[in-house]
């Protein structure tokens, strides 16, 4: 079994919309994968299935040996501790400093401060924000806020880094910088990276595996692929 294994997966929402249909694919440990497709093609639902924000209607979703489809609500946190999640809108807590935002998760697991500190500093160093640990989110640029979000996602050394449109709110130059940070994490830490994006230029420049979804169906899956999604949809 591969690290991420999806077999004949369907996701039909209560309003009748089929977001994912008969999806079968697998992702190896340490892979870097782009998930692309037109708006509403099921990209976000796909990643939500991976971190169990949504449950598949039918089929199997395995992540790091956990059957996500059969995971009880009370056990979801165990899956999420193996994952790091990065969002388009950063989801930082405005009243906490950069350091506190990154340490937030670890503190709530009951870890000691002296164990937390080196992990947080290392994560912030990796994203190039070590000098701004005392800043608050509103004192940072969009790119810097996304770096904080990435640092928070990698602080507990996750097996998989899921990035849902990480450059969606950023200008092209900053987007490139952010993708460089994410690519380095994949290379240096061996973390499996799954990035949902619309950014054709980024996908084409990095030459990684590209999974394209079309109306919830797997339309294309190529190694060292290019952006092929039809944006007209």
């Amino acid at each position: 079994m591969k690290f991420i294994d999806i077999k004949n997966c369907y996701k039909v929402y209560k309003n009748g919309v089929t977001a994912i249909a008969d999806l079968t694919l697998s992702i190896d440990k340490g892979e870097f994968v782009f998930v692309t497709g037109a708006s509403g093609c099921g990209k976000s639902t796909f990643v939500k299935l991976l971190y169990r924000e949504e449950k598949p209607t039918k089929g199997q979703v395995w992540v790091g040996g956990i059957n996500v489809a059969k995971l009880y609500n009370s056990r979801v946190y165990k899956l999420r501790r193996k994952l790091g999640i990065v969002f388009q809108d950063f989801k930082l807590l405005p009243k906490l400093t950069v350091y506190e935002n990154v340490s937030f998760g670890l503190e709530n697991t009951g870890m000691k401060q002296k164990e937390i500190k080196p992990l947080v500093l290392k994560a912030l160093e990796r994203v190039g924000l070590k000098e701004k640990i005392r800043s608050f989110p509103n004192q940072l640029s969009g790119g810097e806020q996304q770096r904080v979000c990435i640092a928070r996602a990698i602080v507990n050394d996750p097996k998989v880094l899921i990035c849902d449109e990480p450059t969606g709110n950023l200008d092209p130059k900053t987007s490139k910088e952010i993708m460089k940070v994410i690519a380095n994490i994949n290379k240096e830490m061996g973390t499996t990276v799954i990035t949902v994006t619309h950014d054709k230029e980024i996908v084409n420049s990095l030459k990684k595996r590209v999974i394209t979804l079309d109306n919830g169906v797997l339309a294309n899956d190529t190694m060292k692929g290019k952006y092929t999604a039809d944006e007209s949809n």
């Binding site: 899956l79 989801k91 709530n108």
Partner: peptide, 16 residues
């Protein structure tokens, strides 16, 4: 609400 959402996403147990 947002704090709770982040807690859930970073893998904090429901009990905590």
């Amino acid at each position: 609400k947002s704090e709770i959402e982040i807690m859930r996403l970073v893998g904090i147990s429901n009990f905590v």
